[in-house]
């Protein structure tokens, strides 16, 4: 089965995010006064072939730990869903 995967890579809690802070500081000038907690990360999309969702998730978790994130400063959130038409 084919699964669509989205991995959000983000800086860990407590790690300074100068991009997020810069964006947040600029927002009031545009009239957006109520925005807070801006954090900038990366979204990585791909498809993975696996027997079921649990297997797909396990593989992606391993991939994140070994490659897509640097655990010293980053963590990730993984979303896995059956790819459209994957049952055919």
């Amino acid at each position: 089965m084919l699964f669509s995967v989205q991995v959000e890579v983000r800086l860990r809690e407590g790690i300074a995010d100068p991009q997020g802070a810069t964006i947040e500081r600029s927002l009031p000038q545009l009239g957006f006064d109520g925005v807070q907690g801006v954090r900038v990360g990366k979204l990585i999309r791909f498809d993975v072939e696996a027997v079921d969702e649990a297997a797909a998730r396990a593989e992606v978790t391993d991939l994140c730990a070994r490659f897509l994130t640097n655990p010293v400063i980053e963590d990730s959130e993984i979303a896995v869903r059956a790819a459209a038409g994957s049952e055919r």
Binding site: I15, A16, P18, Q19, T22, N70, V72, I73
Partner: peptide, 10 residues
């Protein structure tokens, strides 16, 4: 050990 992050203040 450790990591190199973006510089303070970008």
């Amino acid at each position: 050990p450790g990591a190199l992050q973006k510089n303070r203040g970008l």
